[in-house]
Protein backbone atom coordinates (compact mmCIF):
# COMPACT_ATOMS: atom_id res chain seq x y z
CA UNK A 1 0.00 0.00 0.00
CA UNK A 2 1.33 3.46 -0.87
CA UNK A 3 -0.43 5.46 1.81
CA UNK A 4 -2.79 4.24 4.46
CA UNK A 5 -4.82 6.66 6.56
CA UNK A 6 -6.80 5.22 9.48
CA UNK A 7 -9.35 6.96 11.65
CA UNK A 8 -7.79 10.40 11.26
CA UNK A 9 -9.53 13.23 13.08
CA UNK A 10 -8.34 16.85 13.15
CA UNK A 11 -9.89 19.83 14.88
CA UNK A 12 -8.93 23.50 14.68
CA UNK A 13 -10.52 24.86 17.84
CA UNK A 14 -14.24 24.13 17.51
CA UNK A 15 -14.01 23.44 13.78
CA UNK A 16 -13.79 19.78 12.81
CA UNK A 17 -11.60 19.67 9.71
CA UNK A 18 -11.46 15.87 9.45
CA UNK A 19 -13.83 13.46 11.15
CA UNK A 20 -12.61 9.87 11.44
CA UNK A 21 -11.31 9.56 7.88
CA UNK A 22 -9.87 6.25 6.65
CA UNK A 23 -8.46 5.90 3.15
CA UNK A 24 -6.03 3.57 1.39
CA UNK A 25 -4.07 4.88 -1.56
CA UNK A 26 -2.43 2.14 -3.63
CA UNK A 27 1.21 2.29 -4.57
CA UNK A 28 1.97 3.96 -7.89
CA UNK A 29 -1.53 5.38 -8.43
CA UNK A 30 -2.53 8.93 -9.23
CA UNK A 31 -5.25 9.85 -6.76
CA UNK A 32 -7.30 13.02 -6.48
CA UNK A 33 -8.73 14.34 -3.22
CA UNK A 34 -11.77 16.18 -4.49
CA UNK A 35 -14.26 18.31 -2.62
CA UNK A 36 -15.54 21.79 -1.92
CA UNK A 37 -13.25 24.42 -0.37
CA UNK A 38 -12.90 24.10 3.38
CA UNK A 39 -13.97 20.46 3.29
CA UNK A 40 -10.76 19.11 4.79
CA UNK A 41 -8.96 17.70 1.75
CA UNK A 42 -5.94 19.99 2.05
CA UNK A 43 -5.75 19.22 5.76
CA UNK A 44 -5.64 15.51 4.97
CA UNK A 45 -2.83 16.08 2.46
CA UNK A 46 -0.88 18.16 4.99
CA UNK A 47 -1.36 15.45 7.63
CA UNK A 48 0.07 12.89 5.18
CA UNK A 49 3.04 15.23 4.63
CA UNK A 50 3.52 15.80 8.36
CA UNK A 51 2.83 19.55 8.09
CA UNK A 52 -0.13 19.08 10.44
CA UNK A 53 -0.48 16.41 13.09
CA UNK A 54 -3.79 14.58 13.52
CA UNK A 55 -5.62 14.65 16.87
CA UNK A 56 -6.15 10.92 16.50
CA UNK A 57 -5.59 8.25 13.89
CA UNK A 58 -2.67 6.71 12.06
CA UNK A 59 -0.83 7.54 8.82
CA UNK A 60 1.30 4.88 7.16
CA UNK A 61 3.58 5.62 4.22
CA UNK A 62 4.99 2.64 2.30
CA UNK A 63 4.21 0.32 5.17
CA UNK A 64 5.88 2.46 7.88
CA UNK A 65 3.92 4.18 10.62
CA UNK A 66 4.64 7.84 9.92
CA UNK A 67 2.13 9.40 12.31
CA UNK A 68 4.73 10.90 14.63
CA UNK A 69 7.50 11.39 12.08
CA UNK A 70 8.41 15.01 11.30
CA UNK A 71 8.04 16.08 7.65
CA UNK A 72 11.81 15.79 7.22
CA UNK A 73 11.73 12.04 7.81
CA UNK A 74 8.70 11.12 5.72
CA UNK A 75 10.36 11.33 2.35
CA UNK A 76 7.39 12.99 0.70
CA UNK A 77 7.50 15.50 -2.11
CA UNK A 78 5.12 18.39 -1.49
CA UNK A 79 4.02 20.89 -4.11
CA UNK A 80 2.25 24.00 -2.85
CA UNK A 81 -0.51 25.91 -4.62
CA UNK A 82 1.59 29.08 -4.62
CA UNK A 83 4.78 27.17 -5.50
CA UNK A 84 6.71 28.09 -2.30
CA UNK A 85 9.68 28.82 -4.54
CA UNK A 86 12.84 29.74 -2.63
CA UNK A 87 12.90 33.30 -3.90
CA UNK A 88 16.58 34.00 -3.25
CA UNK A 89 17.82 30.88 -5.07
CA UNK A 90 18.13 30.21 -8.78
CA UNK A 91 15.97 27.56 -10.40
CA UNK A 92 18.95 25.20 -10.30
CA UNK A 93 19.54 25.83 -6.59
CA UNK A 94 15.86 25.35 -5.83
CA UNK A 95 15.82 21.91 -7.44
CA UNK A 96 19.19 20.98 -5.92
CA UNK A 97 18.11 21.95 -2.39
CA UNK A 98 16.92 18.55 -1.18
CA UNK A 99 19.96 16.80 -2.63
CA UNK A 100 22.34 19.29 -1.03
CA UNK A 101 20.62 18.77 2.32
CA UNK A 102 21.30 15.05 1.83
CA UNK A 103 24.94 15.91 1.12
CA UNK A 104 25.04 14.14 -2.24
CA UNK A 105 28.24 14.59 -4.26
CA UNK A 106 28.30 17.75 -6.41
CA UNK A 107 28.52 15.85 -9.72
CA UNK A 108 25.55 13.70 -8.88
CA UNK A 109 23.53 16.76 -7.87
CA UNK A 110 24.36 18.57 -11.11
CA UNK A 111 23.48 15.57 -13.25
CA UNK A 112 20.25 14.87 -11.42
CA UNK A 113 19.06 18.49 -11.48
CA UNK A 114 19.81 18.73 -15.19
CA UNK A 115 17.74 15.58 -15.84
CA UNK A 116 14.85 16.93 -13.85
CA UNK A 117 14.90 20.37 -15.46
CA UNK A 118 14.77 18.62 -18.84
CA UNK A 119 11.92 16.45 -17.63
CA UNK A 120 9.86 19.51 -16.75
CA UNK A 121 11.09 21.50 -19.76
CA UNK A 122 12.70 24.42 -17.94
CA UNK A 123 16.36 23.53 -18.53
CA UNK A 124 16.83 26.90 -20.26
CA UNK A 125 15.97 28.77 -17.08
CA UNK A 126 18.36 27.03 -14.70
CA UNK A 127 20.18 30.25 -13.79
CA UNK A 128 17.13 32.45 -13.43
CA UNK A 129 15.45 33.47 -10.21
CA UNK A 130 11.91 32.23 -9.64
CA UNK A 131 10.64 35.80 -10.00
CA UNK A 132 11.76 35.68 -13.64
CA UNK A 133 9.54 32.69 -14.44
CA UNK A 134 5.86 32.49 -15.35
CA UNK A 135 3.44 30.84 -12.96
CA UNK A 136 3.36 27.61 -14.94
CA UNK A 137 7.16 27.45 -15.10
CA UNK A 138 7.41 28.10 -11.38
CA UNK A 139 5.00 25.29 -10.68
CA UNK A 140 7.02 22.92 -12.86
CA UNK A 141 10.15 23.98 -11.00
CA UNK A 142 8.40 23.22 -7.70
CA UNK A 143 7.51 19.80 -9.07
CA UNK A 144 11.09 19.10 -10.16
CA UNK A 145 12.28 20.19 -6.72
CA UNK A 146 9.88 17.78 -5.04
CA UNK A 147 10.86 14.92 -7.38
CA UNK A 148 14.60 15.51 -6.94
CA UNK A 149 14.74 13.76 -3.59
CA UNK A 150 12.93 10.74 -5.09
CA UNK A 151 10.10 10.82 -2.60
CA UNK A 152 8.06 7.81 -1.58
CA UNK A 153 4.92 9.80 -2.39
CA UNK A 154 4.28 13.02 -4.26
CA UNK A 155 1.68 15.33 -2.72
CA UNK A 156 0.25 18.29 -4.63
CA UNK A 157 -1.98 20.85 -2.93
CA UNK A 158 -4.23 22.50 -5.53
CA UNK A 159 -1.22 22.51 -7.85
CA UNK A 160 -2.88 24.38 -10.68
CA UNK A 161 -5.21 26.56 -8.63
CA UNK A 162 -3.21 29.77 -9.07
CA UNK A 163 -2.75 29.42 -12.84
CA UNK A 164 -4.94 30.75 -15.60
CA UNK A 165 -7.31 28.44 -17.44
CA UNK A 166 -5.18 27.74 -20.52
CA UNK A 167 -1.96 26.92 -18.60
CA UNK A 168 -3.99 24.85 -16.16
CA UNK A 169 -5.32 22.66 -18.96
CA UNK A 170 -1.80 22.12 -20.37
CA UNK A 171 -0.30 21.26 -17.01
CA UNK A 172 -3.05 18.75 -16.25
CA UNK A 173 -2.27 16.72 -19.35
CA UNK A 174 1.40 17.11 -18.60
CA UNK A 175 1.04 15.88 -15.00
CA UNK A 176 -0.79 12.81 -16.27
CA UNK A 177 2.03 12.05 -18.74
CA UNK A 178 4.68 12.73 -16.11
CA UNK A 179 3.03 10.29 -13.76
CA UNK A 180 2.99 7.65 -16.46
CA UNK A 181 6.75 8.13 -16.79
CA UNK A 182 7.69 8.37 -13.12
CA UNK A 183 5.53 5.88 -11.28
CA UNK A 184 5.51 7.66 -7.98
CA UNK A 185 2.47 7.35 -5.75
CA UNK A 186 0.80 10.72 -6.30
CA UNK A 187 -2.00 12.45 -4.43
CA UNK A 188 -3.33 15.81 -5.52
CA UNK A 189 -5.95 18.04 -4.02
CA UNK A 190 -8.44 19.86 -6.20
CA UNK A 191 -11.87 21.43 -5.95
CA UNK A 192 -12.35 21.17 -9.71
CA UNK A 193 -14.25 17.97 -10.58
CA UNK A 194 -13.29 18.22 -14.25
CA UNK A 195 -9.60 18.32 -13.30
CA UNK A 196 -9.99 15.30 -11.04
CA UNK A 197 -11.92 13.30 -13.67
CA UNK A 198 -9.40 14.14 -16.36
CA UNK A 199 -6.19 13.40 -14.48
CA UNK A 200 -6.79 10.90 -11.69
CA UNK A 201 -6.97 7.09 -11.67
CA UNK A 202 -8.89 7.28 -8.45
CA UNK A 203 -10.95 10.01 -6.84
CA UNK A 204 -11.67 10.35 -3.13
CA UNK A 205 -14.47 12.78 -2.43
CA UNK A 206 -14.16 14.67 0.85
CA UNK A 207 -16.72 17.08 2.18
CA UNK A 208 -17.29 18.65 5.58
CA UNK A 209 -14.46 16.60 7.05
CA UNK A 210 -15.89 13.26 5.92
CA UNK A 211 -14.88 10.86 3.18
CA UNK A 212 -17.95 10.56 0.95
CA UNK A 213 -16.82 8.02 -1.63
CA UNK A 214 -13.73 6.54 -3.28
CA UNK A 215 -13.55 5.09 -6.75
CA UNK A 216 -12.55 5.50 -10.37
CA UNK A 217 -13.93 8.57 -12.15
CA UNK A 218 -16.46 6.36 -14.00
CA UNK A 219 -17.54 4.59 -10.80
CA UNK A 220 -18.25 7.84 -9.09
CA UNK A 221 -20.07 9.39 -12.01
CA UNK A 222 -22.21 6.34 -12.74
CA UNK A 223 -22.70 5.04 -9.22
CA UNK A 224 -22.58 7.95 -6.82
CA UNK A 225 -22.92 6.80 -3.23
CA UNK A 226 -25.17 9.68 -2.30
CA UNK A 227 -26.82 12.88 -3.49
CA UNK A 228 -23.80 14.97 -2.49
CA UNK A 229 -21.39 13.01 -4.70
CA UNK A 230 -23.88 13.08 -7.54
CA UNK A 231 -24.39 16.85 -7.22
CA UNK A 232 -20.69 17.55 -6.92
CA UNK A 233 -19.58 15.55 -9.94
CA UNK A 234 -21.94 16.96 -12.54
CA UNK A 235 -25.12 18.89 -13.28
CA UNK A 236 -28.29 17.63 -11.62
CA UNK A 237 -31.97 18.49 -11.59
CA UNK A 238 -34.97 17.12 -9.69
CA UNK A 239 -37.71 14.97 -11.17
CA UNK A 240 -40.53 13.87 -8.84
CA UNK A 241 -38.27 14.44 -5.84
CA UNK A 242 -35.36 12.40 -7.22
CA UNK A 243 -31.97 13.75 -8.33
CA UNK A 244 -31.27 13.03 -11.94
CA UNK A 245 -28.75 14.22 -14.51
CA UNK A 246 -30.30 16.54 -17.11
CA UNK A 247 -28.79 14.50 -19.94
CA UNK A 248 -30.54 11.40 -18.56
CA UNK A 249 -33.95 12.99 -19.12
CA UNK A 250 -35.82 12.05 -22.26
CA UNK A 251 -38.52 14.35 -23.62
CA UNK A 252 -41.37 12.63 -25.45
CA UNK A 253 -44.46 13.73 -27.31
CA UNK A 254 -46.64 10.83 -26.14
CA UNK A 255 -47.27 9.97 -22.45
CA UNK A 256 -46.96 6.45 -21.07
CA UNK A 257 -46.60 4.77 -17.65
CA UNK A 258 -43.04 6.06 -17.11
CA UNK A 259 -43.53 9.66 -18.09
CA UNK A 260 -44.48 12.74 -16.15
CA UNK A 261 -46.20 15.68 -17.76
CA UNK A 262 -44.30 19.00 -17.85
CA UNK A 263 -44.61 22.44 -19.47
CA UNK A 264 -41.76 24.07 -21.38
CA UNK A 265 -40.79 27.47 -19.93
CA UNK A 266 -37.78 28.37 -22.04
CA UNK A 267 -35.57 26.77 -24.68
CA UNK A 268 -31.87 27.75 -24.92
CA UNK A 269 -29.83 26.68 -27.90
CA UNK A 270 -26.14 26.43 -26.95
CA UNK A 271 -24.62 25.14 -30.15
CA UNK A 272 -25.06 21.38 -30.28
CA UNK A 273 -26.68 21.20 -26.88
CA UNK A 274 -30.19 22.44 -26.23
CA UNK A 275 -31.15 23.29 -22.67
CA UNK A 276 -34.86 23.09 -21.84
CA UNK A 277 -36.36 24.66 -18.72
CA UNK A 278 -39.55 23.02 -17.59
CA UNK A 279 -42.16 23.14 -14.86
CA UNK A 280 -43.48 19.82 -13.61
CA UNK A 281 -46.21 19.79 -10.93
CA UNK A 282 -45.15 23.25 -9.81
CA UNK A 283 -41.44 22.26 -9.66
CA UNK A 284 -38.68 23.70 -11.82
CA UNK A 285 -36.44 21.25 -13.66
CA UNK A 286 -34.25 21.31 -16.72
CA UNK A 287 -33.22 18.83 -19.37
CA UNK A 288 -30.37 18.60 -21.85
CA UNK A 289 -31.25 17.39 -25.28
CA UNK A 290 -29.92 17.51 -28.82
CA UNK A 291 -30.79 20.06 -31.45
CA UNK A 292 -32.31 17.24 -33.52
CA UNK A 293 -34.63 16.17 -30.67
CA UNK A 294 -35.66 19.72 -29.98
CA UNK A 295 -36.60 20.24 -33.64
CA UNK A 296 -38.47 16.94 -33.81
CA UNK A 297 -40.60 17.83 -30.75
CA UNK A 298 -40.88 21.43 -31.92
CA UNK A 299 -39.97 22.60 -28.41
CA UNK A 300 -41.12 26.11 -27.52
CA UNK A 301 -42.37 27.94 -24.47
CA UNK A 302 -45.85 26.82 -23.35
CA UNK A 303 -45.77 23.40 -25.03
CA UNK A 304 -46.59 20.30 -22.98
CA UNK A 305 -44.06 17.46 -23.08
CA UNK A 306 -43.67 14.14 -21.27
CA UNK A 307 -40.48 13.54 -19.30
CA UNK A 308 -38.94 10.15 -18.59
CA UNK A 309 -35.58 8.91 -17.31
CA UNK A 310 -33.45 7.09 -19.84
CA UNK A 311 -32.89 3.43 -19.02
CA UNK A 312 -29.20 3.99 -18.28
CA UNK A 313 -29.91 6.89 -15.95
CA UNK A 314 -27.73 7.09 -12.83
CA UNK A 315 -28.89 8.14 -9.45
CA UNK A 316 -27.84 7.95 -5.85
CA UNK A 317 -29.26 5.06 -3.84
CA UNK A 318 -31.42 5.99 -0.91
CA UNK A 319 -31.29 5.98 1.99
CA UNK A 320 -27.65 7.02 1.81
CA UNK A 321 -25.28 4.56 3.42
CA UNK A 322 -22.40 6.31 5.17
CA UNK A 323 -19.30 4.18 4.91
CA UNK A 324 -17.45 4.57 8.18
CA UNK A 325 -15.06 1.72 7.45
CA UNK A 326 -12.03 1.82 5.22
CA UNK A 327 -12.75 2.41 1.60
CA UNK A 328 -10.20 1.06 -0.78
CA UNK A 329 -9.70 2.48 -4.20
CA UNK A 330 -10.43 0.02 -7.01
Amino acid sequence: MGISVRGVTKRFGEFVALDDVSLDIPSGALTALLGPSGGGKSTLLRIIAGLESPDSGVVEIAGTDATTLPPQRRNVGFVFQHYAAFKHMTVFKNVAFGLEIRKRPKDEVRKKVKELLELVHIEKFADRLPSELSGGQRQRMALARALAVEPEVLLLDEPFGALDAQVRKELRAWLRRLHDEVHVTTVFVTHDQEEAMEVADTIAIISAGRLEQVGTPDDLYDHPANDFVMTFLGPVTTLSGDLVRPHDLELRAVPDAETTEATVVRVMRLGFEVRVELVCAGQDLWAQTTRENADRLDLQAGRTVHVARTTSATGAPDPQPQGAGTQTAR
Binding site: L51, N75, G77, A85, F86, G98, I101, A148
Partner: peptide
Protein backbone atom coordinates in the same frame (compact mmCIF):
# COMPACT_ATOMS: atom_id res chain seq x y z
CA UNK B 1 6.89 35.87 3.34
CA UNK B 2 4.75 33.18 4.97
CA UNK B 3 5.65 29.74 6.17
CA UNK B 4 5.35 27.81 2.90
CA UNK B 5 8.97 28.14 1.79
CA UNK B 6 10.01 26.80 5.20
CA UNK B 7 7.53 23.93 4.99
CA UNK B 8 8.80 23.11 1.51
CA UNK B 9 12.33 22.94 2.95
CA UNK B 10 11.14 20.60 5.72
CA UNK B 11 9.53 18.22 3.24
CA UNK B 12 12.84 18.23 1.35
CA UNK B 13 14.58 17.03 4.49
CA UNK B 14 16.00 20.26 5.93
CA UNK B 15 16.09 20.40 9.74
CA UNK B 16 14.73 23.37 11.66
CA UNK B 17 18.16 24.97 11.93
CA UNK B 18 19.06 24.27 8.28
CA UNK B 19 15.73 25.74 7.20
CA UNK B 20 16.33 28.85 9.28
CA UNK B 21 19.86 29.36 7.99
CA UNK B 22 19.24 28.56 4.32
CA UNK B 23 15.65 29.71 3.76
Amino acid sequence: IGIEQEQAAWTLGASGLQTFRRI
